[in-house]
Simulated scan of single mutants.
Amino acid sequence: MSGAAGRVVALSRSGEHRFSKAPTDSVRLLEGLGVEGDAHLGTTVQHLSRVAVDPTQPNLRQVHLIHRQLLEELLEQGFALRPGDLGENVLTEGLDLLGMPVGTRLALGEAEVELTGLRNPCAQIERFRPGLLARVLGRDARGRVVRKAGVMAVVRRGGMVRRGDAVVTQLPPLPHHPLERV
């Protein structure tokens, strides 16, 4: 999978803490901080529920990425969603984001991010569209929780990212560890 290539389909950001983000043609990623102009920018946690628990926690959720296949799957189940609706910053295609290990690096345009874990779907998704939470949070055949609402990353190299940019993966050294909720 190292060197696997995908593409940036859409980009979104919001300067306010709200569920969905507004689409944009490009974003600037700031090293160690996140998406310029986004409410989740910072070295420490910015998600309000996490700030309430411990505002000094490191921000492992600087950039939220979702694979286009999820939106297509949800459309087949009756949920027509647009880029940014689920609060993601980057919508990709051609990559199995959920199957990548912790520490995978993604070169996005001029920038590079490192995957830290899975987005943990919460009640906000259900408030946004009733019935949606059950579609992005389920269980596999062995009863383990399956989170499909995207992955989270930190910015390792800042730079511009534009719609249509290639996404190139670099796997971390072995042993690989699966993504877990963060």
Rank of each mutant, 00 (worst) to 15 (best):
Leu91Met: 07
Gln77Lys: 15
Leu74Tyr: 02
Pro55Glu: 13
Asn59His: 08
Asp85Lys: 07
Glu73Arg: 06
Thr92Tyr: 01
Arg61Ala: 10
Ser49His: 15
Asn59Trp: 07
Gln77Asn: 10
Leu48Thr: 14
Glu76Met: 12
Gly84Arg: 10
Gly78Trp: 03
His64Asn: 10
Val53Tyr: 13
Asp54Met: 01
Gln62Gly: 13
Arg50Asp: 10
Arg61Phe: 06
Leu86Tyr: 08
Leu91Phe: 05
Ala52Gly: 00
Asp54Phe: 02
Glu72Phe: 09
Pro58Lys: 10
Val63Asp: 09
Gly87Asn: 06
Leu65Trp: 11
Gly78Pro: 03
Arg61Trp: 05
Ser49Gly: 04
Asn89Val: 03
Ser49Tyr: 13
Glu76His: 09
His47Asp: 13
Gly78Gln: 02
Gln77Tyr: 00
Ser49Lys: 13
Arg50Cys: 04
Ser49Thr: 13
Gln62Trp: 07
Arg68Pro: 00
Gln62Asn: 09
Asp85Trp: 04
Thr56Glu: 13
Leu71Met: 00
Ser49Ala: 14
Thr56Trp: 08
Pro58His: 11
Asp54Lys: 00
Ala80Phe: 08
Leu86Met: 15
Glu73Trp: 02
Arg50Asn: 04
Arg50Gln: 14
His64Lys: 10
Val63His: 09
Arg82His: 08
Val51Leu: 12
Val63Ser: 12
Leu65Ile: 11
Arg68Ala: 14
Thr92Met: 03
Val90Tyr: 02
Leu86Asp: 06
His64Val: 02
Leu81Lys: 09
Thr92Lys: 01
Leu60Gly: 11
Arg61Tyr: 05
Val51Lys: 14
Arg82Thr: 08
Gly84Glu: 11
Arg50Val: 04
Glu73Tyr: 04
Val63Gly: 11
Glu88Ser: 04
Leu48Ala: 14
Val53Gly: 08
Val90Ser: 00
Arg61Ser: 11
Leu91Val: 01
His67Leu: 00
His67Ala: 15
Val63Phe: 07
Phe79Asp: 07
Glu76Thr: 10
Leu65His: 12
Leu65Gln: 11
Pro55Asn: 09
Val53Met: 13
Leu65Val: 13
Thr92His: 00
Gly78Ser: 03
Val90Trp: 03
Glu88Trp: 05
Gln57Val: 05
Asn89Gly: 03
Leu75Val: 03
Arg82Gln: 14
Leu71Tyr: 10
Gly87Ile: 05
Asp54Asn: 15
Glu73Leu: 03
Pro55Gly: 08
Arg68Cys: 06
Arg82Tyr: 08
Gln57Asn: 11
Leu71Ala: 00
Thr56Tyr: 05
Arg50Ile: 05
Arg61His: 06
Val53Ser: 09
Ala52Thr: 07
Gln62Pro: 09
Thr92Glu: 01
Asp85Ile: 08
Pro83Tyr: 01
Gln57Arg: 14
His47Met: 07
Pro58Leu: 08
Pro55His: 14
Gln77Thr: 01
Leu81Ser: 07
Leu91Gly: 00
Gln62Val: 09
Arg50Gly: 02
His67Ile: 02
Gln69Asn: 09
Leu70Tyr: 03
Leu81Glu: 06
Gly87Ser: 06
Ile66His: 04
Gly84Ile: 08
Ser49Phe: 12
Arg61Asp: 02
Arg50Leu: 15
Val51Gly: 10
Pro55Arg: 13
Pro58Met: 05
Ile66Glu: 06
Gly87Phe: 01
Gln69Phe: 01
Val63Asn: 10
His47Gln: 13
Asn89Lys: 02
Arg61Asn: 02
Thr92Leu: 04
Gln69Glu: 15
Ala80Thr: 14
Pro58Thr: 10
Gly87Thr: 04
Leu91Cys: 03
Val53Arg: 14
Phe79Lys: 09
